[in-house]
Nucleic acid binder design. Structure first.
Length: 110
DNA sequence: CACTTGACTTATT
DNA sequence: TAATAAGCCAAGT
């Protein structure tokens, strides 16, 4: 039997818990899981997660609030459209009011 | 089995 | 303030 709790699976669980209309960053998830600077792995997990409908990968952006992974969706505009559909305002692939919509698992899930 | 690439972040120059 | 280096781990070649 393989590992029941892969790092990827834990990432998925946290991403699933992101409230609608909020976003978080790869690094915050990594730190919440105790991975420290393994933020890249979170991004890589998202790459594998895009096949899972349960994982709202569009709610995960980089620390600048920039939609770095938009190109990995069906179309480069899918991510922005989904975020805007949840009330998040985006301009030039940059989340506006990022500080308010930011959802930090270390603070919220504490 | 070794090297390269990648949805990142922090520190240093 | 901007550019470069390093650290992280997994998957693909």
């Amino acid at each position: 039997m393989s590992k029941n709790n892969d790092f990827f699976d834990q990432v998925y669980q946290v991403v699933k818990l992101i409230p609608k209309g909020r976003v978080t960053s790869y690094g915050s998830i990594a730190q919440y899981l105790g991975a420290g600077r393994s933020a890249r792995i979170v991004g890589y997990a998202m790459n594998s997660a895009h096949t899972l409908a349960d994982v709202p990968a569009h709610r995960v952006v980089n620390r600048n609030g920039l939609l770095t992974g938009k190109m990995h969706f069906g179309t480069p505009d899918t991510m922005q459209q989904r975020l805007e559909a949840e009330g998040i305002r985006i301009e030039d692939d940059q989340i506006q009011n990022f500080k308010k919509v930011f959802w930090d698992p270390k603070e919220e899930l504490l």
